[in-house]
């Protein structure tokens, strides 16, 4: 055993001497990871303590899994967790395919000018601040001056208070998120499509395939590995929902469908100063996310041979 360890360090030393320039290049990234990602993990112990800012992390007593028990007994946390999963799940079903469809549509556009124009149009919302997007959405859906309600009333329909009715929150949230991000997210798929050899399409054209057949039989299967990778990443983020955007759009009237773990953590931790409970909620989220991404990766590797690791 000792020989193996000595051998390992000897090899490492040789590697360091030989490729020191490469290790030097790696150093800033390594430091960044250590300082900003691993060092803060020290704070995770708060989740297992009865934390008081006055006593500090070290001075606060250990309480084991007490904070987690409190959380799981808290109906508001359970509701927030289920809302998170529901909003993310609906996003996965409705928002995830949109960039793929967009990318395929851009690819099918024959006119270079038309393609550039439409790409610019759908990319633009991504660069708008989430605060402005929320403002636009609030204005659009305003019951008195909003375009949507004006159209509804001109059609003789009742005005809808979209942002105060819990049943509309998820639709508004996911719909406006699609508008904001789908175009930009399509870049990844467009890049994957650009990597497909044009001769595959030429060969298919000679063989008699229609554009529809080429899309189903060439484009989609060829970008499938990219779709799977993006899906795994998305599944890993299932328990994370855009915190700022929710905060900007929700209100107590819509908590029933809008309150998610991150807003719960914000209210409990920062506004309610229950740091230990908020940390436990965050850690709980992270563990679930890790389990999800791990499982998705494993399933993907078995089913399609594509995986993140």
């Amino acid at each position: 055993m000792a020989t193996i360890i000595v051998g390992y360090f000897k090899r490492l030393g040789e590697d360091l001497r030989r490729d020191w320039q490469l290790y030097l290049l790696m150093l800033p990234m390594l430091l960044w990871f250590l300082l900003f990602l691993y060092k803060p993990m020290e704070g995770l112990q708060i989740a297992f303590k009865d934390f008081s800012p006055f006593r500090g992390i070290a001075g606060s007593p250990w309480v084991g899994l007490e904070n987690f028990r409190t959380l799981l007994d808290d109906q508001i946390f359970i509701r927030a967790f289920l809302n998170t999963i529901t909003i993310s799940g609906l996003g996965l079903i409705f928002a995830f395919p949109v960039p793929i469809v967009l990318a395929i549509m851009f690819n099918e556009l024959q006119s270079e000018l038309g393609r550039r124009f439409s790409q610019t149009i759908v990319y633009l919302p991504h660069f708008i601040s989430v605060v402005i997007v929320a403002g636009i959405v609030i204005n659009l859906l305003s019951p008195t001056t909003g375009v949507v309600n004006l159209i509804l009333s001109s059609l003789g329909l009742d005005r809808v208070y979209f942002l105060t009715q819990p049943e509309w929150f998820r639709t508004v949230f996911i719909g406006s998120n699609i508008w904001k991000e789908a175009g930009f997210e399509s870049i990844v798929y467009l890049a994957a499509i650009a990597g497909i050899s044009p001769t595959l399409y030429e060969s298919a054209r000679v063989d008699g395939a229609s554009r529809w057949q080429m899309m189903w039989r060439i484009t989609l299967p060829c970008i499938l590995p990219t779709i799977i990778i993006m899906l795994i990443i998305r599944i890993g983020n299932l328990v994370e929902v855009g915190f700022e955007y929710i905060i900007l759009l929700y209100q107590p009237a819509t908590y029933r469908t809008a309150d998610v773990v991150s807003t719960y953590v914000y209210r409990t931790g920062l506004q309610g100063t229950q740091y230990d409970l908020a940390t436990a909620a965050g850690l709980f989220n992270a563990v679930i996310a890790f389990a999800l991404v791990f499982a998705a990766n494993r399933i993907s590797r078995k089913v399609s041979t594509t995986s993140l690791w």
Partner: peptide, 30 residues
């Protein structure tokens, strides 16, 4: 597709997600 020609390309133009049989059958399938 209506010229009744078949073409063999320099880089083979094989569909990477299909096996040999499916590649050969592609033109007939479509």
């Amino acid at each position: 597709k209506d010229r009744d020609v078949a073409m063999v390309f320099q880089n083979y133009a094989l569909y990477p997600h299909l096996n040999v049989a499916e590649n050969i059958a592609f033109g007939l399938r479509v």
